[in-house]
Each structure stands twice: as C-alpha cells, then as structure tokens.
Lab assay of single mutants.
Amino acid sequence: KKYKIKVYVKDKKTKKWKKIKEIEVDTKEEALEAIKKLPPNYEVKIVP
C-alpha cells in the first residue's frame, strides 16, 4: 500500500494554495518522516 504526500505552498500574490510536489512512500512512518523535513510554511496532505 502506497501513500502519496501532496505538498502545497501558499502563493503570496494570489493567496491560493498551489501544489508544488508529490512524494510517494510505502509506509505511514515514512510519510511522517518526510513531512518533518519540509519547511513549516508548507501545507501537506497524506493520501492513502
């Protein structure tokens, strides 16, 4: 079972969220580790 991490950042001009990358991992633990490495201003969604 794979997890997709969708990473969004808020556009300063439009104030809208835009997706900047998608990370695919195998476990939820890996997903949480990957999220920890991202800057705090990123919004993250984990999709099972």
Rank of each mutant, 00 (worst) to 15 (best):
K28Q: 12
W17A: 02
L32V: 08
K19Y: 09
K10C: 10
P48W: 09
L32Y: 14
P48T: 14
K12Q: 13
P48Y: 10
A31T: 04
I20T: 03
T14M: 05
L32M: 12
D26G: 09
I23G: 01
K16A: 06
E22Y: 03
E29N: 07
P39K: 07
E43I: 15
K6I: 15
V7L: 05
Y42A: 11
L32S: 06
K45M: 12
K12T: 11
I23E: 02
P40K: 13
E24I: 13
K21F: 15
I20N: 01
E24H: 12
K4C: 09
N41D: 11
E43K: 15
E33Q: 12
Y42W: 13
T14G: 06
K37Q: 12
K12P: 12
K13S: 07
N41K: 11
T27L: 03
P48N: 10
I5E: 00
Y3C: 06
K36P: 03
T27I: 03
E29H: 06
T27E: 02
P40T: 06
I20Q: 03
K18R: 13
K45F: 12
T27M: 02
V47P: 01
Y3E: 00
K2W: 06
E43D: 09
D26M: 09
K21Q: 14
K6D: 08
K21L: 14
D11Q: 05
K36T: 08
L32R: 11
L32G: 04
K19P: 05
K4I: 14
P39R: 11
A31S: 03
K21H: 11
K4A: 05
I46P: 01
K13M: 09
K18P: 00
E22P: 00
K28P: 12
K15G: 15
T27D: 05
K21V: 12
E22M: 04
E30F: 02
E29Y: 07
K28G: 04
K13G: 06
K1W: 07
V25Q: 01
N41F: 14
V7M: 06
K19R: 04
K21C: 12
K19E: 06
V47F: 12
I20W: 08
K21R: 12
T27G: 08
D11F: 03
P48F: 12
D26Q: 10
N41Y: 15
I35T: 04
Y42M: 08
K10F: 15
K16H: 06
E30H: 05
E43S: 15
K2P: 06
E24Y: 15
Y8T: 00
I5D: 00
I46A: 01
K4D: 01
N41H: 14
A31L: 13
N41G: 13
I23V: 08
A34W: 14
K37P: 03
V9P: 00
E24C: 13
K2M: 08
I5L: 13
E24V: 14
V44N: 01
V9G: 04
K6S: 12
V44E: 01
T27S: 14
E33M: 07
P48S: 13
K37M: 12
K16F: 05
Y8S: 01
K19T: 03
K16S: 04
K6N: 11
K15T: 04
E30K: 07
V25T: 06
D11L: 05
T27R: 03
V47N: 05
A34H: 12
D11K: 05
K16C: 09
Y42R: 09
V47K: 05
E22G: 01
N41I: 11
E22L: 04
